[in-house]
Computed example of a mutant assay.
Amino acid sequence: MPSDAKAFVYTELQIALPFGDVPWAELNAEIRKQPGFVNKTWLSGIGTGSVGGFYEFDSVENAKRFVTGYFPGEARKFGVAQTTRVFDGSVVVEASRFLNSLHFGGTLGTQPAAFLYTEVQVSAPFDAVPWRTMNPVLKAQPGLLHKTWLSGADNHSAGGFYAFDTIEHAARFATDYFPTEAAGLNAAYTTRLFDAGPVADASRAMASPYFV
């Protein structure tokens, strides 16, 4: 994937729906028309059946246009509440490359079985986040394949989008390791776990770097 990604978007609909019932082919066609869209990885919540996505856009401006213009209409069609987050990709390049981020030139080996989204309730420019200390510890976590660091546009929250080789490894990271990371930052946090299996075809159709 290009190494000059400028923005990422995380979305999740407050819905419980087997991914096989999601009209993803129809939705994909509309999303591909959105200005600045680069790729999307579909998300299917483990234990919740929520539906969402992790997107790459060519700019923060186009990412914001997507979450304020197109996406609320998508949520309205399903009649559900929604979550959206926009992240500045230009500041996380070096940190993400260290962890084999596929959005910054990483290498795809094992296809992921699970995705994990995290966000810590801090407000700090990314160069103030101790990622150089954290990255070697993260790299040693069992089953971690890729991480893309996230830095909140405007609010400077810190987080990540991770790919793991198994659901078990992803769940263990979310419940055992990540709380210690957030405690080190003295902050509340969010973790969301997703099954990569059901979303492979839908994501591949959207040029997701996690499925070839």
Rank of each mutant, 00 (worst) to 15 (best):
1 M>I: 10
7 A>V: 14
10 Y>V: 15
10 Y>N: 10
11 T>P: 10
13 L>T: 12
15 I>F: 08
19 F>D: 08
21 D>W: 07
22 V>N: 07
22 V>A: 09
24 W>Y: 15
25 A>M: 10
25 A>Q: 11
27 L>E: 11
32 R>F: 07
33 K>N: 11
36 G>M: 06
40 K>D: 05
41 T>Q: 04
41 T>C: 04
41 T>F: 03
42 W>V: 06
44 S>P: 12
44 S>Y: 09
46 I>D: 06
47 G>W: 02
48 T>F: 12
49 G>C: 14
54 F>R: 02
55 Y>I: 08
63 A>G: 11
63 A>Q: 13
65 R>M: 13
69 G>R: 02
70 Y>H: 14
72 P>T: 01
85 R>S: 14
85 R>N: 13
85 R>Q: 14
90 S>Q: 01
91 V>Q: 00
93 V>C: 01
94 E>S: 03
96 S>V: 09
100 N>H: 04
106 G>W: 00
107 T>V: 04
110 T>H: 01
110 T>K: 00
117 Y>W: 11
118 T>C: 00
125 P>S: 03
125 P>N: 01
127 D>Y: 09
127 D>E: 10
129 V>K: 00
131 W>E: 09
131 W>F: 13
131 W>R: 08
134 M>D: 14
134 M>F: 12
137 V>L: 05
137 V>A: 06
137 V>Y: 02
139 K>I: 02
145 L>I: 12
145 L>T: 03
145 L>D: 07
146 H>Y: 07
147 K>R: 15
150 L>K: 02
151 S>D: 01
152 G>C: 13
153 A>G: 05
161 F>M: 14
161 F>R: 10
162 Y>V: 13
163 A>D: 10
163 A>V: 12
164 F>C: 05
165 D>W: 03
170 A>M: 06
174 A>M: 11
174 A>C: 13
175 T>N: 04
176 D>T: 15
179 P>W: 06
179 P>V: 12
181 E>P: 10
184 G>D: 05
184 G>M: 05
189 Y>H: 12
196 A>H: 03
197 G>Y: 03
203 S>K: 01
203 S>G: 02
205 A>S: 11
207 A>D: 06
209 P>D: 00
210 Y>M: 05
210 Y>K: 03
211 F>H: 07
212 V>I: 08
